[in-house]
Simulated assay, not measured.
Amino acid sequence: MTVSPLRLGVNIDHVATVRNARGGLYPDPIRAAHMAVLAGADGITAHLREDRRHIRDLDMERLKRQLFVPLNMEMATTPEMIGLALSLRPHAACLVPEKREERTTEGGLDIIGGHETLRPAIRQLKEAGIRVSLFVEPEVEVMMAAHDLGAPVVELHTGTYCEAALAADEAHVSHELERLRRAAAHGASLGLEIHAGHGLTFDTVGPIAAIPQIAELNIGHFLIAEAIFMGLDEAVRTMRAAMDAGRVRAI
Rank of each mutant, 00 (worst) to 15 (best):
T77M: 09
I251A: 05
A185T: 03
T17H: 05
H221F: 11
T2C: 00
A36G: 02
Q213G: 06
S87T: 09
A36L: 11
K99P: 03
I55F: 04
R49L: 06
V15R: 08
V154D: 07
G129E: 09
E106R: 13
I82K: 09
V96E: 10
A245L: 14
H221R: 13
A245C: 09
H172F: 02
Q66Y: 10
L180Y: 03
L6N: 02
A227N: 01
F135N: 02
A209E: 04
L232N: 09
L217F: 07
D13I: 07
L118F: 15
G197R: 11
L84D: 05
L118G: 12
F222V: 06
I122R: 14
M1K: 14
V132E: 04
E50I: 12
L109S: 12
E102Y: 14
H147G: 15
I224T: 00
A92C: 10
V136P: 09
P97E: 09
A21V: 06
L48W: 08
A46L: 01
E141G: 00
V69M: 08
I82D: 02
H175M: 09
L25Y: 10
V18K: 15
G197L: 08
P27T: 07
A215M: 04
I111D: 03
A33W: 06
R131K: 10
A33E: 00
E101K: 10
R131T: 12
P207Q: 10
R62H: 06
G197T: 07
E170D: 13
D110I: 08
A46S: 02
L134N: 14
E102W: 15
G199I: 10
A32H: 07
L156A: 03
V140Q: 01
H157F: 14
K99S: 12
A128L: 05
P138V: 00
R7D: 01
Q66W: 10
P120E: 03
A145Q: 05
K64L: 03
A36R: 00
A36M: 05
R52M: 04
R179I: 02
H147L: 08
E226H: 03
L192A: 05
L156R: 01
Y161E: 02
P97C: 09
L200D: 12
A183E: 02
V132I: 06
T2Q: 06
P79Y: 00
I214H: 01
A93D: 12
L6F: 02
T78Q: 09
E170S: 13
G150P: 13
F202W: 15
H147N: 15
A165Q: 10
H221P: 13
S133W: 06
V37F: 11
M230I: 14
N218D: 13
R240C: 08
L95R: 12
I55K: 05
S87W: 05
R123T: 13
T78K: 12
